[in-house]
């Protein structure tokens, strides 16, 4: 009985190690996923990447920038939004 258990344990450990190894070698392994590429998502991604993390930034639109990219200028400095 005990031996059986050990065997199972061993298998679990092995498959766990396998899956961990697999996920590490998988190219789609990252640190953080940021959902939405408006000004907030872009800032979060930049910060994390600068601080040493691999980030996946996902957006539903064909380009990042969100609603801010649509704005003409921003208050109160009236700088360009892009």
């Amino acid at each position: 009985m005990e031996k059986e258990l050990e065997k199972i344990e061993d298998q679990i450990r092995k498959s766990l190690a396998d899956s961990i190894r697999k996920s590490f070698t998988d190219s789609h392994f990252g640190d953080v996923m940021v959902v939405g590429g408006g000004v907030s998502g872009v800032q979060a991604s930049l910060d994390l990447a600068t601080a040493g993390f691999k980030v996946y930034l996902v957006d539903k639109a064909p380009a990042i920038g969100g609603h801010m990219a649509q704005l003409d200028k921003t208050f109160p400095t009236n700088d360009c939004s892009i």
Binding site: S23, D26, H28, F29, G30, D31, V32, M33, V34, V35, G36, G37, G38, S40, G41, A44, Y56, G66, H67
Partner: peptide
């Protein structure tokens, strides 16, 4: 595509 990450930030923004 399946992506494995350790944390998620939701920044989906707004709808006018």
């Amino acid at each position: 595509v399946e992506v494995n990450v350790g944390a998620i930030i939701l920044s989906p923004g707004l709808e006018p």
